[in-house]
């Protein structure tokens, strides 16, 4: 068959894989909802969880779409669509595709015309990220039951432990926000952009929290995270204009 990066057959195959991945999510969703009922979790709580998870996801999903568009110039739409819907993260796929394109001696702007290069790139993007894919089915149960044992032994410590893990992750990303502030000694203020964005987002969250409790606008708590996310992202536009990107 003649090759093109946007060959219809590619879309058919990728579409089928995406349907399979969607089926997995639906399967686990229904399973968990049934279990929630058995555990006596209120229907309202489950509904709120579903609605706010959906709303929260919209803005970051558009950022993923930006990655598809960026990669589509050299790889067509089908392969980036697959890679970014399954396991891929924007940071990884861009680097992996970049490495593979460099090995092929083409830049990010040139469309691949040689099927053997295209297939090699597909392999690189798949194999590079496969650690989780290969290992998760075999190690998850062991890791989870180890944690469950801690919970049985000391309930209070097990709660503190999970909080500590979340905080550890959050603190790493807070540190990352500050990674370029040092550039200011060289007269480059662009490192302050992420710091300002983070502060705006934090303020938005604090305001949502205060309004929700003090003014009793209860529904606000369900949307506080998506609101602070979008407000923070929007603030990046004037901050970048002001501080230089």
């Amino acid at each position: 068959m003649n090759f093109s990066v946007n060959s219809p057959i590619l879309f058919v195959i990728v579409g089928a894989v995406i349907v399979l991945v969607l089926a997995q999510s639906v399967f686990f969703l229904l399973r968990a909802m049934r279990r929630a009922k058995e555990l006596g979790i209120k229907t309202g709580t489950v509904k709120k969880t579903i609605v706010s998870a959906a709303i929260f996801t919209v803005a970051p999903a558009f950022a993923v779409l930006v990655g598809v568009v960026a990669l589509s110039k050299s790889l067509g739409i089908a392969l980036p669509w697959l890679r970014l819907s399954v396991i891929g993260s924007i940071t990884y796929e861009t680097v992996a595709a970049g490495n593979a394109l460099e090995a092929a001696g083409t830049g990010a702007g040139t469309t691949i015309t040689d099927p053997s290069v295209y297939i090699a790139i597909a392999w690189v993007m798949t194999v590079g990220i496969a650690a989780g894919l290969v290992l998760v089915p075999f190690v998850t149960k062991k890791l989870q039951s180890g944690l469950a044992k801690v919970g049985l032994k000391d309930k209070k410590w097990s709660d503190i432990l999970s909080n500590a893990m979340f905080l550890g992750m959050i603190s790493a990303f807070l540190g990352y926000v500050f990674c370029d502030v040092g550039l200011i000694v060289k007269g480059d203020a662009s490192g302050l952009i992420p710091v300002c964005v983070m502060i705006v987002s934090a303020l938005a969250m604090a305001i949502c929290g205060t309004l929700a409790t003090k003014a009793k606008i209860r529904w606000l708590t369900d949307y506080a995270l998506p609101i602070s996310l979008v407000v923070g992202m929007a603030s990046a536009i004037p901050f970048t204009a002001l501080l230089g990107g």
């Binding site: 558009f62 926000v177 934090a202 929290g209 602070s228 996310l229 992202m233 990046a236």
Partner: peptide, 17 residues
């Protein structure tokens, strides 16, 4: 810039909570 700043915008809010 809005798409570039998704992580600071996300973790700022989450950190407050």
């Amino acid at each position: 810039p809005a798409f570039d700043m998704i992580l600071p915008a996300l973790f700022g809010g989450l950190a407050v909570v």
